[in-house]
């Protein structure tokens, strides 16, 4: 009984202040924080670039301990929308102090959720992340343009698709956490530079191009101060 009380006491003590991880998604371009619709700020391959829209789903958030055991899972999907700064910050709360090493999440919506009917909340089909002509969520949406000598060259990447062999959901693993304040950098310069030149500027349906670009998204996620 005493042990039980001590355990409860410890939990209460721990959870009073420290049992919360905050996760902030921070897109960057040229090493600087990204602002939407900002001209004259960023360049990619010597062209000025303007980003007008960045939205993506983060789901199955979990923290992993040094024994590679999942210690905390948040099964819901979160729509991260740069136009809504509050959506870029998430919190994970605990009942007790945990030794956590890694932070992992799914970039995009898994196939089971994709085939399970109508959802509300962050998965509401009115949020611009659901295709209407073909069932399925857009996992990652990036829109903008390059200002070139010949005028603006627009690009639209609506990456999604849940059917094999073109399933696009990715797992992002960010190892060795040192702080409870997790800042996840998203390096869009790295992504835009890695896109093969022969691909079209508008990729807006599932298929091999969407799959290829989704795979190119994985290495652009990193922890700040890594």
């Amino acid at each position: 009984m005493n042990n039980f009380l001590i355990t409860i006491g410890l939990c209460l003590l721990h959870c009073s202040a420290n049992c919360q991880y905050t996760i902030e998604f921070k897109p960057i371009l040229n090493g600087q924080k990204l602002f939407l619709d900002s001209a004259d700020l960023y360049t990619v391959n010597s062209n000025e670039v303007v980003i007008s829209n960045l939205k993506f789903y983060a789901g199955a958030l979990h923290l992993v301990n040094h024994k590679k055991q999942k210690v905390k899972t948040d099964s819901s999907y979160h729509l991260i929308d740069l136009a809504k700064p509050e959506s870029t910050k998430l919190q994970l709360e605990f009942q007790e102090e945990l030794l956590v090493n890694d932070f992992r999440f799914k970039l995009g919506v898994d196939s089971i959720t994709n085939v399970s009917g109508a959802y509300g909340g962050d998965l509401d089909p009115t949020l611009g992340m659901y295709w209407t002509w073909q069932s399925g969520y857009i996992n990652f949406k990036l829109e903008g343009f390059y200002a070139t000598e010949n005028g603006n060259r627009e690009f639209q990447y609506h990456l999604g698709g849940y059917l094999n062999p073109f399933e696009t959901v990715q797992e992002i693993r960010l190892d060795i956490l040192t702080s409870k304040k997790i800042v996840v950098l998203i390096d869009l310069e790295k992504f835009l530079k890695s896109i093969p030149a022969e691909l079209p500027d508008n990729i807006m349906s599932p298929g091999k191009n969407a799959k290829l670009l989704s795979e190119l998204l994985v290495p652009i996620f990193s922890l700040e101060n890594e």
């Binding site: 085939v115 089909p125 073909q134 069932s135």
Partner: peptide, 16 residues
């Protein structure tokens, strides 16, 4: 077979 669940079927004709 573009629509995978009857619950989301109506999105297609409404938006087309």
């Amino acid at each position: 077979g573009a629509v995978n669940n009857i619950e989301v079927q109506a999105l297609a004709p409404i938006s087309h």
